[in-house]
Simulated scan of single mutants.
Amino acid sequence: MARLVLFSLFFFFLSILLQIQPGVGAADDDECKPEICGDIVIRFPFRLIERHSDHCGYHGFDLSCSPNYQTILNLPLTTSSSSSSNVVVITHIDYGSQMLYAEDPDGCFVKNFENFNFSASPFQLFHTYDIFYYFSCPHDSSYKGINSSELCPPYYELPCPVDCASDSTQQVYAVSINAELYNLPPWPCKSITKISDLKHFSLNWSEPMCGHCESLQKLCRFRDINNTQHNLTEHETECYGELKQVKQPRDFSKKLIITGYCLTSLVILVGVSLTYSILTSDDNKRY
C-alpha cells in the first residue's frame, strides 16, 4: 500500500512539472511578445533591450528595465555634453495618443534639458498646461531677480530662482508663461525651455503611426515585405492580431522558476523515498 501511494505521488508531481515546462518554452518562441517592466507594458514600437531582439522595436525606441523595475529611456546627448546623464524614467506609455510620460530621476529636468539632442531623437517635448519659461542668466550680468525661492509669488508672475539648475556660472529662473513681458529677464539672459514641471514632463512621437491600431484593438509591427507585391520601405508598419491585456506580473518568471525548483525537489524527494521503500522491502524478504 505504501509503495502504491509513493508511486502515485511521484507521477502526480512529475505530471505537474511537465505541464509547466512546455509553457516556458512556448513563451520563449515569441521573442517579440509584449513584456512588462514594473507596471508598464512594453510592445512595438518599443522594445525591451534585455528581452527583445533588435527587430522587435523601431529605431530609437529602446527601453531598459532597472533592477527596481523602473522603465528607462536614454535620450541622445549633444556632443559637448557627452559626460552628462541622459537617463529619464518612463512612468506611463499611451500607445493610442503616442505619448510618453516621464520624470527626471534627479527631479530637475531643466538642468539637463540643454544637454538633450532632441533633433536626433524620435521623441519631442510635448507642452501641457501650466507652462513656465526657464531662463539662464550669467552671474556677471546686471540682472538680479528674486534671490530666494521662499519669496516667490504663488503663480510665478516674477522670475523665481531654480537652485537645482543653477551653478557657479549661471542662475536659472522660472517665470509663468502669463507673466508680463516687462517682467521677463532681459538680455544677456537666454530662454532655455518651457515646461510645466521640474520633474515630470511628456514626450510624443509621430513615427511610426501605430495609434490607429490601438483604436482597432490590434497590435502594431513592421510589415512583412516578403509577403507583399508592393514596393515598401523598411519603416512601414501594419496592424495585426488582437490587443490583449497582459496579465503576467513583473515577477512571473521568477515565480515560475521557484515553482519549478519546488516541484523538482518534491519529485526527487518522492523518488528517494520510493527507492528506500523498495530496498527496505527487498531486505525484509531476504530474512
Rank of each mutant, 00 (worst) to 15 (best):
M1E: 14
A2Q: 10
V5M: 07
L6G: 03
F10M: 06
L14H: 00
L14G: 00
Q19S: 05
P22I: 07
G23M: 04
D28S: 09
C32D: 10
K33N: 12
P34Y: 02
I36K: 11
I36A: 01
C37N: 03
C37T: 02
F44T: 00
F44G: 04
L48Q: 07
L48F: 02
E50M: 04
H52L: 08
C56E: 11
C56G: 07
Y58P: 06
F61M: 08
D62M: 11
L63C: 06
L63M: 08
C65D: 08
S66Y: 01
N68L: 08
N68E: 14
Y69I: 06
Y69V: 08
Q70C: 10
T71V: 15
L73T: 06
S83I: 09
S83Y: 12
S85M: 09
N86M: 10
V87N: 08
I90P: 12
Y95F: 14
Y95H: 11
Y95Q: 12
Y95V: 08
S97A: 13
Q98V: 06
M99Y: 04
K111T: 10
N112H: 12
N112Y: 15
N112E: 13
F118K: 05
F118H: 04
S119P: 00
S119L: 07
S119A: 15
P122D: 06
Q124K: 13
T128Q: 12
D130H: 14
F132K: 14
F135M: 09
S136D: 03
S141A: 12
N147S: 15
L151T: 12
L158S: 05
L158P: 01
C160G: 05
D163Y: 07
D163E: 14
C164R: 10
C164Y: 06
S166Q: 03
D167N: 15
S168T: 15
Q171S: 07
Y173H: 09
Y173S: 06
V175H: 04
S176V: 12
I177Y: 13
E180G: 00
L181I: 13
L181V: 14
L181M: 09
P185L: 03
P186S: 15
W187A: 15
W187D: 15
P188W: 05
K190L: 13
K199G: 01
H200I: 06
F201E: 02
F201R: 11
L203D: 01
N204A: 06
W205V: 06
W205H: 03
S206D: 14
S206C: 07
P208W: 08
E214C: 05
E214Q: 15
E214S: 14
K218T: 14
C220L: 11
Q229H: 13
Q229L: 10
Q229S: 15
E234W: 06
E236W: 01
T237K: 08
E242P: 01
L243S: 13
K244E: 13
Q245W: 03
V246G: 02
V246L: 10
V246C: 04
Q248M: 08
P249L: 02
R250K: 03
D251C: 00
D251S: 00
F252W: 04
F252K: 02
S253Q: 05
S253C: 02
K255F: 03
L256Y: 01
L256I: 05
L256M: 04
I257V: 03
I258Y: 04
I258H: 01
I258R: 02
L263R: 00
L266Y: 02
G271T: 04
T275P: 02
Y276K: 12
S277L: 08
N284H: 13
K285S: 09
